[in-house]
Design a protein around this nucleic acid. Structure first.
Length: 282
DNA sequence: AACCAGGGGCCGG
DNA sequence: CCGGCCCATGGT
């Protein structure tokens, strides 16, 4: 991969496994909007970033070289070599198809506070509405960052009541959000150090509104626990369709044995593939 | 153990 | 255009 300053941004070339559409549409992130073909606006790290991809080039703007190195390279997981991951997963015929379909997926390294609240909102909810709810939260309590709004700081949200959260139209999740903010602020969920998978998982599961699926998303997307395999309805459908026509109630366990440390990548390829297939609705 | 809460997008009719 | 369906978790 190469990158250089270009106008008010940074141009990336000679890269592998990067497609901004795959990255944003595979269900891991909610704070983005589509401007055009492989042209997106993302809000993260208190900034707005436009990512425009065409013809073997990706332009990140506005963005300095320093900002690219310090923030976005990590955010987009650019240091990681995906060819090893893909090679391992593609030994399986179904996974080979899924990897080919979503070959440009990278797992973003997202901010933990935002990720925890976002995936509480995501429970029993669909992507357009999740984006709406998070947007409501940011517009009302986040800093203005030039036409967009940053995800609010914990110090702001810590002052809110369940009633305040309810006004964001998050429904019964309001009390979960208020509780999660309290638990993060009081280190009952420790987002500032790198504990083991088991420790974080326990802290998350002890939080009302966070169950198996949501905790795995948080661990995968913001704690770098890449073995996590969140099982949502799409992943369940696609896995049962291809591997267990009779059904399987232990898909997470199956994935752990089959994919091991690559579970999270497998899940993302499968999710993106499943959404395109529209299978199993009968 | 099965079912609802709660709500807005979405799909089929 | 509208009525029923979807959805992850906790509570009953």
């Amino acid at each position: 991969m190469k990158y250089e300053a270009a106008g008010n941004g940074v141009k990336m070339t000679e890269f592998d496994s990067f497609d901004i559409e795959h990255i944003l549409e595979c269900g891991q992130c909610f704070r983005f909007s589509k401007l055009g073909e492989k042209d997106y606006k993302i809000a993260a790290h208190g900034r707005v970033l436009r990512v425009t991809q065409s013809g073997g080039e990706v332009l990140f703007s506005p963005c300095s070289l320093l900002e690219f190195e310090k923030i976005w390279a990590g955010y987009f997981d650019l240091e990681r070599d995906y060819s090893e991951i893909k090679k391992f997963l593609s030994k399986d015929e179904v996974m080979k198809k899924a990897v080919e379909f979503g070959g440009g997926i990278r797992i973003l390294n997202q901010e933990r506070f935002e990720c925890i609240l976002s995936f509480i909102i995501s429970q029993n909810n669909q992507i357009p509405r999740i984006k709406k709810c998070i947007g409501n939260l940011c517009e009302k309590y986040g800093a203005d960052i030039g036409g967009e709004y940053a995800f609010p700081d914990i110090s702001i949200l810590a002052k809110l009541s369940e009633y305040d959260f309810n006004e964001l139209r998050v429904g019964f999740r309001a009390k979960y959000l208020a509780d999660a903010v309290y638990r993060i602020q009081n280190n009952l969920i420790n987002i500032n150090c790198d504990d083991s998978y088991g420790e974080i998982k326990r802290e998350l599961l002890d939080t009302k509104g966070i169950g198996a699926k949501v905790s795995n998303c948080i661990l995968l997307f913001s704690f770098g626990k890449r073995a996590s395999f969140p099982v949502d309805v799409w992943v369940r459908r696609v896995v049962e369709h291809f591997y267990f026509p009779e059904g399987n109630n232990e898909i997470e366990k199956w994935a752990a044995e089959k994919f091991g440390e690559y579970g999270g990548y497998a899940q993302q390829y499968l999710f993106y593939y499943a959404r395109s297939l529209k299978i199993g609705k009968s």
